[in-house]
């Protein structure tokens, strides 16, 4: 990370909402125009949340 980066932790936190939102939007879009329904793809939400938590942890322990 470069010098501008002051608060990696709060960056991960701030980014959490938007990423979740994008994921939900993508899943619904696939539901409506793609081949898979939301009842099939919902576990992707869990995966995204899990990965974000891991990354939060990684950045906080790195700082």
């Amino acid at each position: 990370m470069n010098g501008v980066n002051v608060q990696p932790v709060s960056l991960m936190r701030a980014v959490r909402g938007p990423i979740l939102l994008i994921t939900i939007g993508t899943l619904f879009a696939i539901d409506h125009v793609g081949p898979y329904s939301f009842s099939t793809t919902w576990p992707a939400l869990l995966i995204v949340i899990g990965v974000m938590k891991l990354m939060e942890r990684a950045t906080s322990s790195a700082s």
């Binding site: 919902w42 938590k53 891991l54 942890r57």
Partner: peptide, 20 residues
């Protein structure tokens, strides 16, 4: 140890594969 995140990911992957 990051139990919760890993649990989330594992459960997510398993159910996704099952659904597909």
């Amino acid at each position: 140890f990051p139990v919760l995140p890993i649990l989330l990911i594992v459960v997510g992957v398993v159910f996704l594969l099952d659904n597909l």
